[in-house]
């Protein structure tokens, strides 16, 4: 077991030890499982949102590119991944592409082998499509004179994008991005259908032991708590953006 894994287990044991007595009995009995799962959910969320933001930005820039092929490719990216359900995307990659097996997938197999890696990749791609759309909308709200002014000052298109347009687009798009982050968190629960033991996966395991609805309620509270934390964090950033 890796050090990182041990650390995660230590955290959840610690949390559960501290929460003893103040949490309901039905929760306390399986507490480490919920928190183990919670940490996996958190980890997937942080990684996929960071990666998705980078890819989404690239796609958004491609959408306003002067090259038609690039524009079309970026449009198709957003269209396909926003037009199909996340669950379908997860199953296409895990059960569909994965069924081709190690012989056909070759060096890609270690990726397809892992439910966690597939989950992370699909969540990343899915959120990148939405982020690209949000950012494109943000860029669209800026007056076209800004780009012209930047170009006439001798900036390259790339530099104008990085220095002038994107920072403003981010500020405009921030609230919408916040919504997308919450949606991503909720969507991440679907990785439990491809064997990942995230919060939802653990919850379903615990549910199978006693068929008690409580199980789902505890998990719902944990998810709602995470959503509240995210919302608070996003608000704080938004305030700073406004001051700047």
């Amino acid at each position: 077991m890796s050090l990182y894994q041990d650390l995660k287990y230590a955290i959840s044991d610690g949390v559960c030890y501290a929460a003893q007595g103040v949490t309901p009995e039905g929760f306390a009995a399986y507490c480490p499982r919920y928190i183990d799962g919670f940490l996996v959910t958190l980890e997937l969320l942080l990684l996929s949102s960071a990666l998705g933001l980078s890819i989404g930005t690239l796609v958004a820039v491609a959408r306003v590119s002067r090259q038609r092929a690039l524009r079309t490719a970026a449009w198709a990216w957003s269209y396909v991944f926003r037009g199909t359900p996340l669950l379908v995307q997860l199953w296409i990659v895990y059960y569909g592409l994965g069924s081709l097996g190690p012989e056909k997938l070759g060096i890609l197999w270690p990726f397809f082998k892992s439910g966690w890696a597939v989950g992370l990749a699909v969540l990343t791609i899915n959120t990148s499509a939405y982020i690209a759309e949000i950012l494109r909308g943000g860029i669209g709200t800026l007056p076209p004179g800004q780009l012209e002014a930047a170009l006439s000052c001798g900036m390259s298109r790339g530099m104008a994008m990085r220095r002038i347009l994107l920072p403003q687009a981010f500020r405009v798009a921030w609230p919408a991005y916040g919504n997308e982050l919450i949606l991503l968190m909720k969507g991440s629960a679907l990785v439990s259908t491809i064997t990942v033991m995230d919060l939802m996966g653990q919850t379903r395991s615990v549910f199978a032991r006693g068929y008690s609805l409580e199980t789902y309620m505890y998990s719902a509270v944990l998810y709602a708590l995470l959503a509240l934390l995210l919302t608070a964090g996003l608000r704080a950033v938004e305030k700073r953006l406004r001051v700047a």
Partner: peptide
């Protein structure tokens, strides 16, 4: 809005 749709459907289903 804070709880996964998947969880809400399961709750609706069993609840």
């Amino acid at each position: 809005r804070g709880v996964p749709e998947f969880l809400i459907l399961l709750l609706a289903f069993f609840g």
